[in-house]
Write a protein that binds this DNA or RNA. Structure first.
Lengths: 250, 250
DNA sequence: CCAATAGTGTCTTTTAGACAATATACG
DNA sequence: CGTATATTGTCTAAAAGACACTATTGG
């Protein structure tokens, strides 16, 4: 073994040699998937995008869009990042550009036997889609059929795998984030009114919001510059509402 | 194909047949690990448990305790749940019983090339250990060496893999949870004083807490029964402090 | 007695919540 | 005009933050 001035270089060389020699053991490995809980609010209803399975297992049942993470087959090619896999699935299965959608890792579900075929660990993500983008959604090629299900009907559907549990976890997370973050903005069009934003809160949390009190919270966001007035008014059944948009700073 | 009265039974039979015939494709699969960010607060310092690697890659560097998830090799044997893997690693690498430790899934890290050997996706968990349990911790058999590192020295250490990123994510999560949850109780002994609990908050969040205001928050927990008075006083350098413990309801 | 810190009290500001009152459309 | 609802206003209560004050110990 050659003498080196630092010892560190030597260690690096040693590690390089180790890696060159390294052969992955043939231990059993799980399949790893990403599944997406794609949510939107249209016509005052919270909906989740589901895809009808056309293959076993759970053939004919509704399931979350998703797929296996692409893993390369060596040290050089290790495949795609998890976020990239989620983004790819989103774009493949909905045609929606990542850029217009809020996407966040939710939780990893890996119970044994959650998939009867084999051990599958799924990294679940949730995506929030603005209602004006919903018409752009087209089911991807590998989906026999896609549909936006009413969240309040979830109990009646019997989803594939543990996907109902995943959907409920996503809902809890989104409802929680409404309180302290800006996620609600990902569920309204680029311009919106106070009542529209309030409706999103009510629909996601399932609880009525006092219009006056909600307006006060909204005003604080206005003052802080998160939101700014937009031109125009929204015509409604009664008094028209002022239209707002997110501030430039965002 | 036999006629069946419901069609559902038929579908189940079909699926059973599918599963019996099913052969897992030999697609590349990632290795899946669980890594643990084990945190404690001793002597007014936040510390994280690290283990010195005695194998390549990153031989000689410090890393989070963890290991590969045990995956069975078929439909029947699918191995252990993720939480079980985390619990097992905790017990193996620290000797601590799951029962006495707060354990929660943190986030899943799966960047390509985060491990130079092969594609490894790690489901990170964090664990909170009461200071009085720290002396019980003994490094597991497969660890050459374990040590509790000062969190504030993390920048100087250069951890293996992306483990520094994981530790920082855990810290953010714990600091966030202090605000609205009971996790702080997992970082003090079974009985504790108000200043001790306050110190945990200050150490984890890195921000001073006003003693008076903190005491008021504490009093609210007292009234709600989350906490109750315990016998004895804690002798300090000055005026002794009253000792409390968690309420029976917990 | 004195230094240190546990524990209390006070005052201000912010935020939430309940709810009344007003304003302004559309039909 | 009248109904609906956006918007403003008022009042109360809870909670946070700043900070002064008191109490009780060990040294």
């Amino acid at each position: 073994m050659a003498l080196t001035p630092t010892g560190k270089l030597e260690r690096d060389g040693e590690e390089r040699a180790f890696l060159a020699r390294y052969k992955a053991g043939d231990y059993a490995r799980p399949a790893v998937a990403v599944d997406l809980v794609v949510l939107t609010v249209v016509d005052a209803e919270l909906r989740v995008l589901l895809i009808k399975r056309d293959e076993h297992p759970f053939k004919g049942k509704w399931a979350l869009p998703g797929g296996f993470v692409r893993v390369g087959d060596g040290q050089k090619d290790q495949g795609e990042d998890l976020d990239a896999a989620a983004t790819r699935e989103l774009e493949e299965e909905t045609g929606l550009d990542r850029k217009w959608v809020y996407l966040e890792q939710l939780y990893t579900f890996g119970r044994a036997h959650r998939d009867p075929r084999m051990r599958v660990i799924t990294v679940a993500y949730f995506a929030l889609v603005r209602p004006d983008l919903v018409p752009m959604v087209r089911a991807g090629g590998d989906a026999a059929m896609a549909d936006w299900f009413l969240m309040r009907n979830l109990g009646k559907v019997s989803l594939a795998f543990d996907h109902e549990e995943i959907v409920r976890a996503a809902l809890r997370r989104v409802a929680g984030k409404l309180e302290y973050s800006d996620v609600a903005f990902s569920l309204v069009p680029l311009t919106f009114t106070v009542p529209e934003l309030r409706a999103v809160h009510e629909i996601v949390t399932g609880e009525k919001q006092d219009p006056g009190n909600f307006r006060r919270r909204f005003n604080r966001m206005l003052e802080s510059g998160v939101i700014e007035k937009a031109p125009g008014k929204r015509i409604t059944a009664s008094k028209p509402a002022t239209v707002y948009r997110f501030g430039r700073s965002r």
